[in-house]
Design a binder for these strands. Structure first.
Lengths: 208, 208, 208, 208
DNA sequence: AATGAATGAGCCTTCATTCAT
DNA sequence: TATGAATGAAGGCTCATTCAT
């Protein structure tokens, strides 16, 4: 029995307004992302995105400046997942090999989700030059993490001497590819896949 | 030196006609492919393709039924390179590991060329359903080659027991990724890259 | 005279909106129809239609799915006139001959208007198969009306025994042809023409 | 056993050349006409015409100046049939009614053939202005024949006094319409149809 | 914040026609 | 006479984006 004073007012507070707006932005992103991955960016019209959300096309412009902005926001959301994982691992304990394996697991897992898949499925040519620049920087960060911990492992003796760049290319390629072949309804769970890959991708590198 | 009698006639023979037509088809393919890789399929107009060839747009239709036909022909040309490599290796000698390494080298090399790059850069959604079906079959053939020689290597003792499917996914991913990062003007030649990868991708698999 | 309070608001009500939209659809139809009859369907571009309406080509797509849809809608609008006439006559009194003459007048009048002319001037080949099917059904309805009342007249003795099918063909042909030769600025008014034809086409049929 | 002297030379004489050329022109006309009636002028490409004749598109230009020339030649061929019929009837005996009936039979028969059908199925807008002018003149000739013999019949007493123009419109419409509904594989032969129409269209006119 | 309506820009495709051979 | 190849011209349609309400 809530008293009138505590009943929720139908007139949203500024705070609630902000939350709702943010939730709508997220919903647009999720919907657009799903469509982009299903049909490809150029085959998706803003009408489709809007329809799935039960709104109309121009309404989208209240939340995003345009189609490429949505694309970019999708990518960035994916990257932030990756960046968060990297930070978490960096903040945690472990030698180079341990951290490399943790990154493989985290990044590999990400690749089995839409948020992660878009990181490599989106075509660079669909971004504006400015967006491309920012994306390029982000990609370098991820690459630096891989190379960094490989180098650290060589340093601390957990990884055999090798060219960190090439090793990172190999590992990155194998992980990125997961997004292309892994199906949620397939025989292997994402966790099983990344566990397998963490082992498989480092047996050649580990000093035992 | 050539007497009038042996000079080449300006009137092409039927044979020469056929060759020239074929050469023109190839030129269209190469030009379109280069543009597709540079700018992305949807950002390339047939006008651009035609202009680069110093012809007009409708002239393209003398050689291809439409834009997606060109796209498809590009893909198929790439696949035929791959298939030829597979056949050559299959026809040659060697145990499973040897052949797997040969395939890694051949496929990796292909990935440093436009013909190969398009195999994974083109978006499935841009093909017609019929084309997708054919492509799907072709991809299965390549995958089968990787898995097959891994399985053969396990059989003949040159490769340690493991899941050929996962191993093939790892190798395939690493190789496909080459097309994304390798630059012709980079520090490593294609040959050096694939040599490195052939070693790197099989150290974890080889029985010594 | 109107006080500010009773002035029409510039903000259209939903009802007014619907009416305006409907009026625009009609305007498109009328304009397109006029052009189609003037120049022939294939010589009319959507740009011309749009220009005459002081809008742009894509705006047409807010009201019709495409060019053939417009063509079809024109035809259907004409048919509905005819169908309404048939219903009205069917609902009214009179023997077979009386009704036949009424139909001749109504259908003949229709043929002197663009709405009616299009019924026979449009080429079946310009419709989609689905549209053709529907049109075919509509044409059968009209034909059935002619034949039906001829048969009824034979039954009730107002028309001499004869083959209703052939009689209907003759009458239909004569009436359809009106659309080809009658000019609004000609010597005979539409009413005079159909009065003449109602007599002329039934003197051979009437039992006196 | 034809002697060498009488054997047909493989080198055609100029006379035979002319005959063959003329035959080819006819073949093109027939083929094009059939296609035009089947699919409508604008849906028929010169490629289709050429293919049906087992030649190539540009070859057509050896016989006709362009697509509309073919269309026009088709129409003219049809008209000449009609004109020949008119002349034959004019040259023969009979009062106005007799000749009118003869014309109805002849013109009606023509309408059951492709040559005749095209006379009213082709769209005026598809001709050039010059062609339109000539066609207009031809149509007037036919119309004049109908009206003339009706007037003659009134004069000689075989036809009841009436407006020849309107009577001709009625008869012409009914006859032209035959081309729209008559099927060669239908229940009535062309001869039966025109016999019926000759009677039906003049019962109201004849003085008995 | 959301909508209906309209627009501008662009692209693929078709096809009659021409030309060199 | 016939062909292969190429072109010019044009049209329908799509869609991201804007604007008034």
């Amino acid at each position: 029995m809530s008293s009138p004073a505590t009943r929720i007012s139908p007139f949203p507070t500024p705070e609630r307004r902000r939350r709702e707006r943010s939730a709508k932005r997220e919903a647009i992103l999720d919907t657009a992302l799903a469509l982009f991955l299903e049909q490809g960016y150029h085959h998706v019209t803003l009408n489709q995105v809007a329809e799935r959300l039960h709104i109309t096309k121009p309404a989208l412009y209240n939340y995003f400046a345009g189609k490429t902005e949505i694309l970019f926001a999708c990518w960035m959301a994916g990257f932030e997942h990756a960046a968060a994982g990297i930070e978490r691992i960096a903040a945690g304990p472990g030698d180079g090999l341990t951290r490399l394996r943790a990154l493989i697991r985290a990044y590999g897992l990400l690749m089995t989700t839409p948020r992660g898949r878009c990181l490599i499925r989106f075509d660079d040519n669909d971004f504006t030059p400015e967006q491309r620049d920012r994306i390029s920087g982000c990609k370098k960060q991820v690459d630096a993490a891989f190379r960094g911990w490989i180098a650290a492992g060589i340093e601390d003796g957990s990884i055999r001497p090798c060219d960190p760049k090439m090793a990172a290319f190999m590992i990155g390629g194998a992980l990125n590819w997961i997004g292309q072949w892994h199906r949620d309804d397939g025989p292997m769970s994402p966790e099983a896949v990344v566990e397998d890959f963490a082992e498989r991708l480092t047996t050649g590198l580990a000093t035992r």
